[in-house]
């Protein structure tokens, strides 16, 4: 009797907790849409400037989010380009070459790397910048390049792990056929294993792009500022969407600025949602294409 009562209570509470969790999140998103949709539009991004002129770099945007959007875009492209070769290669090593003991030891480091708070990575990037400034060149200070390097370091363990897991989860028949026919390890890797694992690797990469786009703690120590315009070089300071949201939350002067903050939230959430959906679609379709070239 006591037992059935407990079972019924737990069942009820479980459904209730699920309901609470999703209502909170749906309420958050609904509130964001309610506040952000009315401001969403051309003037939110481009202000008074003509969009074409702004995109072509002929005119500066003063009261729009365009520089922040471009800053985030540069940041994502740069840090992904920096992290990909090292991350994928390290993942391949762990999955295909490392002896078990070495694999465990490396795994320990990458678990720590994945757990290091992003602000500590930012602090590391900042320290490196200060170090370079003192000992090598006075021109180096926290900037777009330092941020991109730090972000690349932040997402490195995710890329390593998703590459490793994607390769390790391939079934033995796929793994053994090509070597049995005389292929070398590298040929097996390039022509068989990577194409089969590609969709999972790419969807891991897309999710780590999302992390680059949303991270605020790393960039706030390594060169992001509230107003900088579109960065002119790798060594200049820049704006970024998540930092803009953080900045507005404390420094907004009037309702219009606050509304722009909600608009920025919505754009950032939209970017992350698109990346998330893309990752899911890639997971479903890419392997098929890579293998059968359709």
């Amino acid at each position: 009797m006591m037992r059935t009562l407990m079972e019924k209570t737990i069942t009820f509470l479980s459904w209730l907790m699920t309901l609470v969790l999703f209502s909170v999140v749906l309420f958050f998103i609904g509130y964001l849409l309610h506040k952000g949709l009315p401001v969403l539009g051309r003037s939110l991004v481009f202000g008074e400037t003509d969009p074409m002129q702004a995109i072509l770099g002929r005119a500066r945007v003063f009261d729009g989010l365009f520089p922040a959007v471009m800053g985030t875009l540069y940041l994502v492209l740069l840090s992904t380009a920096l992290a990909l070769p090292i991350g994928i290669s390290a993942g391949i090593y762990l999955a295909e070459y490392a002896p078990p003991a070495a694999g465990r030891r490396f795994g320990f480091f990458f678990d720590i790397l994945a757990g290091i708070p992003s602000i500590v990575i930012g602090l590391f990037g900042f320290s490196v910048a200060v170090f370079l400034h003192k000992h090598f060149s006075g021109r180096i200070s926290p900037c777009l390049l330092i941020s991109a390097l730090s972000l690349a370091f932040l997402v490195l363990p995710y890329i390593i792990r998703s590459t490793q897991v994607a390769l390790e989860s391939l079934p033995a028949p796929i793994r053994r056929t090509a070597p049995a026919l005389g292929a070398t390890r590298l040929q097996n890797l390039v022509y068989v294993l990577i194409p089969h694992a590609l969709s999972n690797i790419v969807s891991g990469i897309i999710l780590s792009i999302g992390r680059c786009a949303e991270d605020t703690a790393v960039i706030m120590l390594t060169g992001v500022v509230a107003t900088a315009g579109i960065p002119s070089s790798l060594l200049s300071q820049y704006e970024a969407l998540p930092f803009y949201i953080y900045y507005i939350s404390g420094q907004y002067a009037d309702q219009a600025e606050l509304d722009k903050g909600y608009g920025a939230c919505l754009i950032l959430l939209g970017i992350c949602a698109v990346l998330f959906i893309l990752a899911g679609m890639v997971k479903k379709h890419l392997t098929h294409r890579a293998l059968y070239k359709v």
Binding site: P85, I86, G87, S89, A90, I92, Y93, L94, E96, Y97, A98, F106, F109, F110, I112, L113, I116, V120, I121, L123, F124, S127, V128, F153, L156, P157, I160
Partner: peptide, 20 residues
């Protein structure tokens, strides 16, 4: 090459601690 990429990543992880 693959080994050195894994090595670099592990060394960097320790470098963060040493730097601090």
């Amino acid at each position: 090459f693959f080994l050195s990429c894994a090595g670099i990543s592990a060394v960097m992880t320790s470098a963060v601690f040493l730097f601090m």
